[in-house]
Amino acid sequence: MIKNINLTLKIWRQDAPDKEGRFETYEANEISTDISFLEMLDIVNEKLIIEGKDIIAFDNDCREGICGMCGAVINGRPHGPQRGTTLCQLHMRHFSDNEVIIIEPFRAAPFKVIKDLVVDRGSLDELIKTYGYISVNTGGAPDGNAIPIPEEIAEKAMDAASCIGCGACVASCPNASAMLFVGAKVSHLSLLPQGKIEAARRVLAMVKKADNIGFGNCTNEKECEVTCPKQVSIENIARLNREFIKACFCSTAK
């Protein structure tokens, strides 16, 4: 049933990366349970503009759960309480009247706050830049059907490739580790015959890069898996580990 609810929001405000942040309290009244979480923030922002106050900055773009741009920590949960859902797809019907909602940015050493809830996730691009690809130039590719790929393998690769790069795995990991992100990319590419060729060099480079960037170490807490809006499985981390061991001890790659 659609109804209106009143909420108290405690939102992290931070003017710039090098400034001190603090929580500020906002009232969001008469919020329809039919709208999305980000639309609720839109309403709060519209009110702030009319009051002449600086709006709450938050990243978002596609608002249909695929671009990976949105994300904040809602009452201790990245992307909010609903499983398999990005923040933009979270709707207010999952909240109750007079609830206090605490909204924080994703936190990890490599995710510097740019403003309020906006963080810099360039480190994830850095990881892809570090061999998160197959080295093919445009042109000269063989026919798409030249190498048959078992359906099961293609599906597994697709499972891994469905990562949207939102960074919620890092945000939810008690250790701020990016191993689900790395594992998903390594799995996606090393499962496919096209990507196998460079598998050893790729896994070594990506793991090293993740360490150098300052992400934490994976200790198999599984928080990433339950938080991931695309429900990417930690099987991919196991595959990453396996690929890493293979690359270390069975290949000439360093």
Binding site: I134, V136, A141, G144, A161, L189
Partner: peptide
């Protein structure tokens, strides 16, 4: 062809 070579899991 190009996309398959890049690892697009069609």
């Amino acid at each position: 062809d190009q996309c398959v070579a890049q690892g697009v899991p069609f």
